[in-house]
């Protein structure tokens, strides 16, 4: 059980001036599972490598239970990283791979063998110890890589894009396996992903990073309901945005004034955002926050229908559950309502 703190952690690679990671601050409580989320190239792997100790920070500090670990070399730091492409040693058997860390710790052979079998059991792959890594499928290799990391009982477990190389249903299985094992063993875990859904499903807390800079560090639902910036909102699937001026719980836009009590700013220029599933359809143009619109097109996606709705020059996306709402043909005139408690005002830019 380790309390992990990153303090102004930065990395500037020698061939560039722009930092790959710029003053990252995180505080990960003991036994928590946190996600580093961000588009490819934003510095997630860089952060992981610094925590693991295979990359020395340009500045900043890393604390395990309040003590700096910067001067502890990787092999004694106790932060084990599972790389994105598994990196099973191809010239070793699966069993030797899993037991590698214990062999490095000079544990005796019999104990290693026993623990390897336990670990294979834990990742639900009993009996593969004598195979070569190349004889396993991608998903199996991922589990072996996980077992190889867990066997040394790390203080901190670092998973770099653990699900990105798997296909859809393997991904679900693996996600649950990770969650279960992490809960059971209570290891402080950081995992990296570029997929916001994955982060939301797995993490206790998400650190959203763009271009080396931490944007927001919050619980998953906050990113949906109260994103801190337009970029964060877009990254989490937001599509409906409307510029305007915010003052006294009112958002004034080209399409009219909307009452909006929820906001990330007090007053000034802002952006109105609302999720597609929160917009309500209607036919009567009364009530607050309601405007006339016209259906441009729609796609039926099984359990729901996705509409493109035009209001003057603006286009909104609306998602209507297939069974709860009547359907509107393309070109028909409708009204849409932005419920006041679903609107979230973002800072502009």
């Amino acid at each position: 059980m380790t309390h992990l703190v990153l303090n102004e952690l930065s990395q500037t690679y020698s061939n560039t001036d722009k930092p790959a990671l710029d003053r990252l601050n995180l505080d990960i409580k003991s036994g928590m599972l946190n996600a580093l989320l961000g588009p490819s190239g934003c510095g997630k792997t860089t952060a992981m490598k610094m925590i693991a100790g295979i990359l020395t920070p340009t500045s900043g500090d890393i604390l395990f239970d309040g003590k700096s670990v910067l001067a502890i070399p990787a092999e004694r730091r106790g932060a084990v990283m599972v790389f994105q492409n598994y990196l099973l040693f191809p010239y070793m058997s699966v069993g030797e791979n899993v037991g590698f860390g214990l062999k490095m710790a000079r544990m005796n052979k019999a104990t290693i063998e026993k623990k390897v079998l336990e670990m294979l059991e834990l990742v639900q792959l009993p009996g593969v110890q004598n195979r070569k890594p190349s004889q396993l499928s991608g998903g199996q290799q991922q589990r072996i890589a996980l077992a190889r990391a867990l066997i040394v009982e790390p203080k901190v477990l670092l998973l770099d894009e653990p699900l990105s190389n798997l296909d859809a249903h393997l991904r679900d299985e693996m996600r649950e396996l990770i969650r279960d094992i992490q809960r059971k063993m209570g290891i402080t875990t950081v995992f990296v992903t570029h997929d916001q859904e994955e982060a939301v499903m797995l993490a206790d807390k998400i650190a959203l990073i763009f271009e080396g800079v931490l944007q927001q560090y919050d619980e998953p639902d906050v990113f949906y309901n109260q994103p801190g910036s337009l970029r964060a909102a877009k990254f989490f699937g937001g599509v409906n945005f409307l510029d305007g001026e915010y003052a006294a719980n009112q958002m004034t836009t080209e399409l009219g004034t909307f009452s909006a009590p929820r906001s990330s700013l007090d007053t000034g220029p802002g952006v109105l955002s609302i999720r597609p599933e929160d917009i309500e359809f209607g036919t009567t143009n009364d009530g607050d926050n309601t405007i006339s619109a016209r259906v441009n097109s729609h796609v039926y996606v099984g359990t729901y229908t996705k509409y493109k709705i035009d209001v003057n020059d603006f286009r909104f996306e609306v998602i209507a559950e297939a069974n709860t709402k009547e359907s509107f043909p393309d070109g028909s005139n409708v009204t849409i309502r932005f419920p006041a408690d679903k609107i979230w005002i973002l800072p502009k830019g």
């Binding site: 693991a52 070399p73 092999e75 990283m81 860390g101």
Partner: peptide, 18 residues
């Protein structure tokens, strides 16, 4: 792929054993 060495390090191999 030098990441194999990084993997070895984090699993507890000192530079020589790595």
């Amino acid at each position: 792929n030098p990441e194999f060495e990084e993997q070895g390090r984090v699993l507890g191999a000192n530079p020589i054993r790595n």
